[in-house]
Each structure stands twice: as structure tokens, then as C-alpha cells.
């Protein structure tokens, strides 16, 4: 038996909007740690890892570890029927073939049950090793979204380079080239507006902008985004989900042949 009650139901709505265009079907795993998901896009270029810790739920009951295969498009359709202020409860029976989403209005005068069919999904779980990253950039998520959107009007690939000078986002296309440089800036009124560049070693990597733009669907979840880069590894683009967890996107680099 599984019963997870999330007072801030809008978080789950935003989480689905952040992953449904990248991944069609995925297994949600439920354990005493929390509600999690790991899935790759169909071409295995990007991987998304979601964790919503059990402590973040008002009520968290998960008697046995449970893996529930869901079509994310269908799940998104159902969650769109929840109001932004609604409390969302996820319910499922061990071995059952459905999951129920219950939406309660804040004043408790409207209660809705949406039951969704589960599916069998054959997914491979990858081990993500802990890594020391060469450079880590934290910036306002809206700024990162703007940069990815702007550069994708010029080119298909972004080169992200971190040096002593700052972090540079570059692209090139048929009509010309673009370079956007951000410098560290911590003298801001609000900490979420800061640009923090932690450079252990300079790094320069190329990535497909199509995927970066897809990751920025998570912008409504968090004021800040963290980009971790190492020359030997996929980039990690991380958005915190309130105090309860994170969405991490891993994107494999483009490599010169």
C-alpha cells in the first residue's frame, strides 16, 4: 500500500511539466527514502533523475518498495486537472495495475479522484558515480532559460566554457555567431540573483541546445540552477524542488571525431 500526501500539489504539476517532453514512459520508484524516477530520453542522450524525499510529504506511507510504470503524457493530463492550490495524494495498492491521484481543494469543498492505468516498462537503471566536477556554475534559472532560448535561434550547439574570466556560452549558425559571458556576481540584493562560479579547472564542452531548452522547462520549480561540468562527463543541470528534493538532468556532450 502506498499513500503520499503532498500539500503543495503544484510542485508535482511542475515536476511533470519539466520531464514529460523529454521522456514518454518511466517508472516511478517509491521507497522509504522517497518518490523517485530515473529515465533516459529515447535516443539515450539525456537522463533525468528526480527525487522527492519522503520528509517533504505531509503523509508518506510506502509499505514495500514499489515501481510504477507511467506514461508521463497521460500523468500530466491528469495532474493538469488539479488546481494549483490543491493538495495531491498519490495512492496505489501493492501489485495493482492502477494509481490514483486525489486532488483536494484547500477549503476541502472539492475532492476529485483520477485513476490512471499503470504500464510495464522495461527500463535500465544506470549507476551515476559521485564525481568531482571541474567547474560548477550557479545562476538565476530565468537567466539560463533566456540564454538557451536566445542561442537556439542562432545555432544548434552551445559551447559552455568556464575560465577565470567567467562562464561563456557560445554558438554558431548559418546567420552568424553569438557569445554570452557571465561574470561572477555575488553583490546582489537577493541571493537567488547571484552568479557563482566555482572553478577548480577550466573546462569547455559542447552540448545540443535542443536538450538544454527542454531542461529549462523546470525553471518554474526553482529560482536558481546549478550547472556542473567536467571534461570527462555529462553536464549536470540541477533544479531544486523546494526543500524536498531535486531534478537533475544529465546531458552527454558532443565530442570531436
Amino acid at each position: 500500500m502506498l499513500e503520499l500526501r503532498l500539500v503543495q500539489g503544484s510542485l508535482l504539476k511542475k515536476v511533470l511539466e519539466s520531464i514529460k517532453d523529454l521522456v514518454n514512459d518511466a517508472n516511478f520508484d517509491c521507497s522509504s527514502t522517497g518518490f523517485s524516477l530515473q529515465a533516459m530520453d529515447s535516443s539515450h542522450v539525456a537522463l533525468v533523475s528526480l527525487l522527492l524525499r519522503s520528509e517533504g510529504f505531509e503523509h508518506y506511507r510506502c509499505d514495500r518498495n514499489l515501481s510504477m510504470g507511467m506514461n508521463l503524457g497521460n500523468m500530466s493530463k491528469m495532474l493538469k486537472c488539479a488546481g494549483n492550490d490543491d493538495i495531491i495524494t498519490i495512492k496505489a495498492d501493492d501489485g495493482g495495475d492502477t494509481v490514483t491521484f486525489m486532488f483536494e481543494s484547500p477549503t476541502q469543498d472539492k475532492i476529485a479522484d483520477f485513476e490512471m492505468k499503470l504500464m510495464d516498462i522495461d527500463s535500465e537503471h544506470l549507476g551515476i558515480p559521485d564525481a568531482e566536477y571541474h567547474s560548477i556554475v550557479r545562476m538565476p534559472s530565468s537567466e539560463f532559460q533566456r540564454i538557451c532560448k536566445d542561442l537556439s535561434t542562432i545555432g544548434d550547439t552551445v559551447v559552455i566554457s568556464v575560465t577565470k574570466e567567467g562562464v561563456k556560452f557560445s554558438t554558431a549558425g548559418d546567420i552568424g555567431t553569438a557569445n554570452i559571458v557571465l561574470r561572477q556576481n555575488t553583490t546582489v540584493d537577493k541571493p537567488e540573483d547571484a552568479i557563482v562560479i566555482e572553478m577548480n579547472e577550466p573546462v569547455s564542452l559542447s552540448f545540443a541546445l535542443r536538450y538544454m531548452n527542454s531542461f529549462t522547462k523546470a525553471t518554474p520549480l526553482s529560482d536558481t540552477v546549478t550547472i556542473s561540468l567536467s571534461s570527462e562527463l555529462p553536464v549536470v543541470v540541477e533544479y531544486k524542488v523546494a526543500e524536498m528534493g531535486y531534478i537533475r538532468y544529465y546531458l552527454a556532450p558532443k565530442i570531436e571525431e
Binding site: V45, G127, Y250, A252, K254
Partner: peptide
């Protein structure tokens, strides 16, 4: 131009 690599090149099956 550069070639797109895949995640499975970097991360192994758990």
C-alpha cells in the same frame, strides 16, 4: 562537426 555521444557511454547499468 562534433558527434553526439550518449549517456550510456559514461554511465554503466546499475
Amino acid at each position: 562537426g562534433p558527434r553526439q555521444s550518449t549517456i550510456t557511454k559514461f554511465f554503466d547499468k546499475a
